[in-house]
Design a protein around this nucleic acid. Sequence first.
DNA 1: GCGGTTACGTAACAGCGTTACTTCATCGAA
DNA 2: TTCGATGAAGTAACGCTGTTACGTAACCGC
Lengths: 216, 216
Amino acid sequence: MSPRRIDPTLATALLEAAARLLAEEGAAGLTTRRLAAAVGASTTAVYTHFGGMDNLVRAMVHEGFARLHRRMSTVRATSDAVADVMALGYAYRANSLDHPQLYQVMFGSAALGGFALSEGDRQHGKYTLQPLVDAVARATEQGRFRAGDPLLVAQNMWIALHGLVSLELGGYLIDPYDADVCFEAQLRSLMAGAGDDYEATAASLARARRRRSPRA
Amino acid sequence: MSPRRIDPTLATALLEAAARLLAEEGAAGLTTRRLAAAVGASTTAVYTHFGGMDNLVRAMVHEGFARLHRRMSTVRATSDAVADVMALGYAYRANSLDHPQLYQVMFGSAALGGFALSEGDRQHGKYTLQPLVDAVARATEQGRFRAGDPLLVAQNMWIALHGLVSLELGGYLIDPYDADVCFEAQLRSLMAGAGDDYEATAASLARARRRRSPRA
DNA sequence: GCGGTTACGTAACAGCGTTACTTCATCGAA
DNA sequence: TTCGATGAAGTAACGCTGTTACGTAACCGC
């Protein structure tokens, strides 16, 4: 086949095709050859533009973190900071469920060609967590959470949220209690663990639930 | 090479070699050919004994769950049920850190040839959680935890623990707070979230810490 | 118009899981 | 004691993977 001079940037086409392949067929379906076929190019395109499959995956992961951050940023601060924290939890989980395969790649739950996050990638993840840290700080100022470092509290909430999403996506939550039940129970437990009054959390949870974004 | 009639059971030799390969070189190092070379056999040995790579992995995962259950079962019930719960948390994390690669395979954090847990495998995981459910039930009876279904409470604790271990093994917990700090902070938060008095938890945590098993 | 750079395709290499097909050792029965 | 069956092992191949050496064609600055 003769060389083609069609796409303005084959790189973006590759990224879009990779995202589609990953979403539709999972990590196993994302191969250089299928990628090349999807954009009508050769497998070497991946190497000229990204230097290898792992760098392409890294670019996708960066985009995933950016989207997660965008999604978290849509949660506005209100006078009920605890509701804000839980609204962020809803946003986090909703984003993960909208892009399950990408989430599993982002957090290592799907090995993709020996891909591993670099130090810089982790800084990206830290940045993503910032809206939650802010909300926790405000909840602490409002006296709902007991005194403590908002970063540590937020990190522990994120850890628990990740555990839930990770096990939910892996299909480990079945039993009598499915992921929805576990999620709301965990939100209440997390707020109580941070110092909020158990009953006060219930009212905030109702507010947070009303603020759920309809779709990504 | 002529056929060999050496091993009493090549199946167990394969499993042992697989465990060693996985532990020493990670999921990427566990291939049929390297496995065959490790036991001095051909790749077809995997198929005659396990019917495929994924079934061999499944056998390893079952062994991993069994070992986790054994480890959890070494935590004895005491008069301080909250300390028991946290001691189980220590045991869970210690077992995971002793077998990090296996843990990541067990919970899907390392794709191994399209391996996926079956319904029966999940029942196995449920069985593993039982010691924690019992401890939570006793903490509830002792009035330390607020009234609620021990299974749901235990499941949420497990979810949070998995989140921590998963992110720790993936190298996501750096920052000012490393995994050790996050772990103990999370234990306190979890107990408080379940209804325990925040200060009472501190004393129980000290007891649980003293009970840590030295090694696997 | 021309030379250098860059982007791309072709073809190949090594390695992967998997699977016919063959060989050989063992065991039970006549 | 010999014979047939069973089953476990090896050999070789298929199709797939990521990756790379090499050739070629298009673009860009002069």
